[in-house]
């Protein structure tokens, strides 16, 4: 791809759209939780813009509240991945030796599992400390524990590459200590790829949350989540297209938006546009 500003713009636009829906959820017409058995499975109309579900709840309102879950888990997971991955990656790359070996083993160990499976195990058998947390945070944590490896790997590679560079030697000659070199000289260099992995990570986490809720171990029933709405759509397959179409489209927009955002950032930050 050439250095195409439209990629970044599309990403920002789509992510912004989801964010607006999440923030404006209380003002969107319709009740996400009020059961109305008189108006079950109604097709989209002027009163219910996206129809109603199997319990007569408004699909549009549920969709908007679902955006909150999706964004919280997506961004929360990316943040947790950063908190774990940044120090570990930096330590492994900068210190090398024993630290590098230890961190690399842990990364390998985490990679041994399909990511979804580990999160699933953590949620399904929730240890007590995890079970006490609010639901979205719990899911973000379960996903974040697995999701930090790309951040750590990028940062490790970047720090390793930079460690022997002229700039670092110069800084050391000028009397800068290890911490100062890491924070002032290495981190700003390594932050660009980290930002990109965070955006990709948010997309993957939003998708993972929907997957977990879809198989029934994510967000628990009354809370509106897109994955769960799709699970309900499965029950009414062939009878109510709006139940599958809207949550699916919302999920698509979120995942596509974050991925475009990540790619746009990468193109913008990477001086070798042709290669991406």
């Amino acid at each position: 791809m050439s250095r195409d500003p439209s990629v970044l713009r599309t990403g920002l636009l789509l992510c912004g759209l989801v964010a607006v829906a999440a923030l404006a959820a209380p003002w969107i017409p319709g009740e996400p939780y009020r059961v109305d058995l008189e108006r079950v499975l109604e097709a989209p109309s002027w009163t219910h813009w996206m129809g109603t579900d199997g319990l007569g709840r408004d699909v549009l309102a549920r969709l908007a509240y679902g955006a909150r879950v999706s964004l919280t888990v997506g961004l929360g997971t990316a943040a947790i991945a950063l908190v774990i991955g940044l120090p570990l990656g930096a330590l492994a790359g900068y210190r090398g030796g024993w630290w590098d070996a230890a961190v690399s083993r842990v990364i390998e160990a985490v990679l041994c599992f399909p990511a979804l499976l580990l999160a699933l195990a953590l949620l399904a058998v929730a240890p007590a400390w995890l079970a006490r947390l609010p639901e979205t945070l719990r899911i973000a944590l379960a996903l974040g524990i697995v999701a930090w490896t790309p951040t750590a790997r990028y940062l490790r590679a970047e720090f390793k590459r930079m460690r022997g560079s002229e700039a670092v030697h110069a800084a050391r000659a000028a009397g800068a200590g290890g911490w100062r070199i890491a924070a002032r000289h290495l981190l700003p260099q390594g932050l660009a790829p980290v930002l990109v992995t965070m955006a990709f990570g948010a997309a993957a986490a939003a998708l993972a949350e929907a997957s977990l809720s879809f198989i029934g171990v994510g967000v628990s029933p009354p809370t509106a989540s897109w994955g769960q709405m799709l699970l309900e759509a499965l029950r009414h397959m062939g009878r109510a297209w709006w139940l599958a179409a809207f949550p699916g489209a919302a999920l698509f927009v979120t995942v596509y938006g974050f991925n475009r955002l990540a790619e746009g950032l990468r193109d913008w930050l990477d001086p070798r546009p042709l290669l991406r």
């Binding site: 499965l234 699916g248 999920l251 596509y256």
Partner: peptide
Amino acid sequence: TDRILALTTTAIYAVPVFWAALLLQW
């Protein structure tokens, strides 16, 4: 061609797999 291929494949990539499964099953 390059741009269209990249655009299509990234768009397809963002389609949630269980949603696609539902659609294909239906």
